[in-house]
Structure formats: C-alpha cells, structure tokens
C-alpha cells in the first residue's frame, strides 16, 4: 500500500515537470494559435545553456537561471519577430514546417557543440536528497520541481489575468485587428509571449537537467510530454496543464512500477484514453 502511495506521489511530482513543459506550449497557443514543434528542443537547449553556465562560472544550476532565463527569453523574442511572425496566418503549414526545421537545426547544432554524450547538471546533492513524510521518502528535487511548477503557473495566471501585458495577450488572441487599433503592435505582443514562454522553458530545462541526464536527441520526447499534458488538461487552460501533467506523470510512474519498459508507453496510453473519452480535455478553456 505504502509502496503504491509512493508511486503515485512520485507521479504527481513528476507531473510538475511535465506541466512546465506544457505551460509554454499552452501559452503561445493561447495567444497566437502557434504550435511550436521545436519546443522540446528549446527545453534541451536551455539545459545545455545551464550546463555551460554552471561549468564556466562554477555556480549552482538555480543561479544559472539568472543567465539562462533572460537569454532564452531574448532568443524567444528575436525568434518570434525574426521568423515565426512571418509564418502566422490561416495556413497551418508554414508555422508547422518552419518550427520543424528549427527543431532539426537546434538538435544538430547541439550535437555539433556538445556531442551525443549524455550530460547532467550538478545540483550539489539536492538531486539525491529526500525528506521523510510519514514513512514516505520524498525526493527534494521532485518536490521543489512541483512547487516551482505551481508557482510558475500561478505567476502566468497572474500575468494573464491581472496585468496590462496579459490584457494585451488576451486582446490580441481575441481579435488581432481590433487589438492593433488599440495601439497594440501584435508583432511585439507575440514576441513578448514567446519570450515569456521561453523563460518558462529555461526553468523547465534546468530542472530537467538536474533530474536526469540529457542529450541532444531527447527534445522530441519532451515536446510530446508537454503536448500530452496540454491536451489532457484541456486547450487554453493553464491550471489544466498542471492537471494534465500530473495525470501523465502518475500514469508513467504506475507504468514503470509494472514494468520499467512500460513507463512512457503507459503515459501515451493515458493520453489516448483521454482523447477517446474526453477529446476536449479535462478542464477545457473557460471564457472570462
């Protein structure tokens, strides 16, 4: 019994990481209906940036965030204004294929720079530390990851619904032309949305890098996890991505408990079941 409780708790905490993968994806889809195929590769890029920062400056990965987050945000803004804005429109092919090309470029640039060897971020011991909760050993890093995910989503929710920036995001999402009439330059607003999304990606990448080893090829898998969390939770609902991430995480840890080779597959199956019975996700978009 306690064993299974542990499995579920682990899954819930893992769900925090997946929610972080999903939050950026959900944000940019909500604002500009863009699905970024390179999202997972950008997470891995952030992890490698964390690696370089920690190695060069000898700082803890969390401190490296102070550099990686603004760099990723800046990259997001430039990427959006330089390339992605040109792909937006009624046709879904250009954004899809351009971000797909981007994904291949990032992957191979990482391969060229860092080789295919698996790397890991040195968290200085917190990755193995755990606290005892009524006989349950809970990993400190997974717990922190989950709490950070909750904080990030609460923060995004605040920005979205309580600030002028978020008002701009929602207005542009509702009606680009009219938003433009209000003095909002949509190209700039989209740039800011992508910057914010990649700032979250930076957090996700650093946490991923401390948790497990990574190599340039695993971005696609992270995109899929984030995507599954988004769809399970319901499109366009930020708290839904957390719920989706948790369900995915729990499905995976239960699968892994049954058979280690079954972990990822169990997550995919959970996703397909949700798609079959609740195609709009568990918490579909709420209009405000």
């Amino acid at each position: 019994m306690i064993e299974w409780t542990g499995v579920i708790v682990q899954g819930v905490l893992l769900g925090g990481l997946y929610a972080l993968f999903a939050a950026g994806l959900s944000l940019i889809f909500g604002v500009m209906r863009l699905v970024n195929i390179a999202h997972g590769d950008l997470i891995i890029l952030a992890a490698y940036m964390g690696l370089t920062t920690t190695v060069m400056l000898g700082v803890h990965p969390f401190l490296a965030l102070l550099i990686v987050m603004p760099v990723m945000a800046g990259l997001g803004y430039v990427l959006q204004r330089g390339i992605l804005n040109q792909t937006l429109g009624d046709d879904i092919l250009p954004p899809l294929l351009v971000t797909f090309g981007l994904s291949v470029i990032i992957q191979n640039a990482l391969l060229e720079t860092y080789t295919a060897d698996p790397r890991k971020l040195d968290g200085g011991g917190i990755e193995v530390a755990s606290i005892d909760m009524g006989g349950l050993a809970i990993g400190v890093l997974p717990l922190m990851t989950f709490l950070i995910a909750v904080a990030v989503i609460a923060g995004l929710q605040f920005i979205f619904y309580r600030t002028a920036l978020g008002r701009g995001f929602r207005a542009v999402s509702d009606n680009q032309d009219i938003a433009q009439l209000m003095g909002l330059n949509k190209a700039h607003v989209f740039g800011l949305a992508m910057a914010l999304a990649l700032a979250v990606v930076a957090i996700a990448g650093i946490l991923l890098g401390m948790r497990t080893s990574f190599d340039p090829a695993i971005g696609g898998g992270r995109l899929i996890f984030g995507f599954e969390a988004v769809i399970i939770g319901g499109l366009g609902n930020l708290w839904g991505t957390l719920a989706g991430g948790v369900i995915l995480g729990v499905a995976q840890t239960i699968g892994a408990k049954i058979d280690p080779g079954f972990q990822i597959l169990a997550g995919h199956i959970a996703f397909l079941i949700v798609l079959a019975v609740r195609p709009n996700g568990l918490l579909p978009r709420v209009e405000h």
């Binding site: 863009l34 699905v35 195929i37 879904i92 954004p95 899809l96 696609g220 898998g221 995109l223 899929i224 995507f227 599954e228 769809i231 499109l235 080779g261 079954f262 990822i264 597959l265 995919h268 199956i269 996703f271 397909l272 798609l275 079959a276 195609p279």
Partner: peptide, 27 residues
C-alpha cells in the same frame, strides 16, 4: 482518434501514435 486533434495538434498526435508503435514493438 487523432482526427479529433486539429491542425498542428494533429501533427503531434501522429507522432504520439508512432511512439506508441515504437515502444510496443520494443516490447
């Protein structure tokens, strides 16, 4: 199943299916 996903989400849905195939055959 995956026709329920629209546009780009359909694309990623097809990828999930491919992953399910890969992981299943690996079993």
């Amino acid at each position: 199943l995956i026709f329920r996903l629209k546009g780009a989400y359909f694309a990623i849905g097809t990828w999930v299916v491919a992953e399910v195939f890969r992981l299943s055959f690996a079993q």
